[in-house]
Simulated scan of single mutants.
Amino acid sequence: MILEVAILHVKKNQEIEFERDFALAGKHISSTTGYIRHTLQKCVEQSNKYLLLVEWNKLEDHTIGFRESDAYKDWKRLLHHYYDPFPVVEHFEMILTNP
Score class of each variant (00 low, 15 high):
residue 27 K to H: 05
residue 27 K to F: 00
residue 27 K to L: 02
residue 27 K to D: 08
residue 27 K to N: 11
residue 27 K to A: 05
residue 28 H to R: 09
residue 28 H to M: 08
residue 28 H to I: 00
residue 28 H to T: 06
residue 29 I to V: 15
residue 29 I to T: 12
residue 29 I to W: 03
residue 30 S to H: 05
residue 30 S to V: 00
residue 30 S to M: 09
residue 31 S to Q: 12
residue 31 S to M: 03
residue 31 S to N: 13
residue 31 S to F: 00
residue 32 T to W: 01
residue 32 T to A: 13
residue 32 T to Q: 15
residue 32 T to K: 07
residue 33 T to P: 08
residue 34 G to R: 07
residue 34 G to I: 08
residue 34 G to T: 09
residue 34 G to H: 08
residue 34 G to L: 07
residue 34 G to A: 10
residue 35 Y to K: 06
residue 35 Y to A: 07
residue 36 I to S: 03
residue 37 R to T: 09
residue 37 R to W: 11
residue 37 R to M: 07
residue 38 H to W: 08
residue 38 H to A: 05
residue 39 T to W: 12
residue 39 T to P: 00
residue 39 T to E: 15
residue 39 T to H: 11
residue 40 L to Q: 10
residue 40 L to D: 06
residue 40 L to F: 10
residue 40 L to G: 08
residue 41 Q to K: 14
residue 41 Q to A: 15
residue 42 K to P: 01
residue 42 K to T: 10
residue 42 K to C: 05
residue 42 K to E: 03
residue 42 K to I: 04
residue 42 K to Y: 06
residue 44 V to W: 01
residue 44 V to S: 05
residue 45 E to T: 11
residue 45 E to P: 00
residue 45 E to M: 05
residue 45 E to K: 08
residue 46 Q to R: 13
residue 46 Q to N: 14
residue 47 S to C: 01
residue 47 S to A: 13
residue 47 S to T: 09
residue 48 N to T: 04
residue 48 N to R: 08
residue 49 K to C: 03
residue 49 K to H: 03
residue 49 K to Q: 12
residue 49 K to W: 00
residue 49 K to I: 14
residue 49 K to M: 03
residue 49 K to P: 00
residue 51 L to P: 03
residue 51 L to Y: 02
residue 51 L to R: 02
residue 52 L to A: 04
residue 53 L to E: 13
residue 53 L to N: 14
residue 53 L to P: 05
residue 54 V to I: 15
residue 54 V to M: 02
residue 54 V to K: 01
residue 54 V to W: 00
residue 54 V to N: 02
residue 55 E to F: 13
residue 55 E to K: 12
residue 55 E to T: 08
residue 55 E to Q: 15
residue 56 W to D: 05
residue 56 W to C: 07
residue 57 N to F: 05
residue 57 N to Y: 09
residue 57 N to M: 11
residue 57 N to I: 14
residue 58 K to R: 14
residue 59 L to G: 01
residue 59 L to D: 11
residue 59 L to M: 14
residue 60 E to N: 14
residue 60 E to G: 10
residue 60 E to A: 15
residue 61 D to A: 06
residue 61 D to S: 12
residue 61 D to P: 04
residue 61 D to K: 01
residue 62 H to L: 01
residue 62 H to F: 10
residue 62 H to I: 01
residue 63 T to R: 11
residue 63 T to P: 06
residue 63 T to K: 11
residue 63 T to A: 10
residue 63 T to G: 04
residue 63 T to I: 15
residue 64 I to M: 11
residue 64 I to V: 15
residue 64 I to D: 14
residue 64 I to Q: 15
residue 65 G to N: 06
residue 65 G to H: 04
residue 65 G to I: 04
residue 65 G to L: 04
residue 65 G to K: 02
residue 65 G to V: 04
residue 66 F to D: 04
residue 66 F to I: 07
residue 66 F to T: 06
residue 66 F to K: 07
residue 67 R to F: 02
residue 67 R to G: 03
residue 67 R to A: 04
residue 68 E to C: 12
residue 68 E to I: 00
residue 68 E to L: 14
residue 69 S to I: 08
residue 69 S to G: 09
residue 69 S to M: 09
residue 69 S to H: 06
residue 69 S to Q: 10
residue 69 S to F: 03
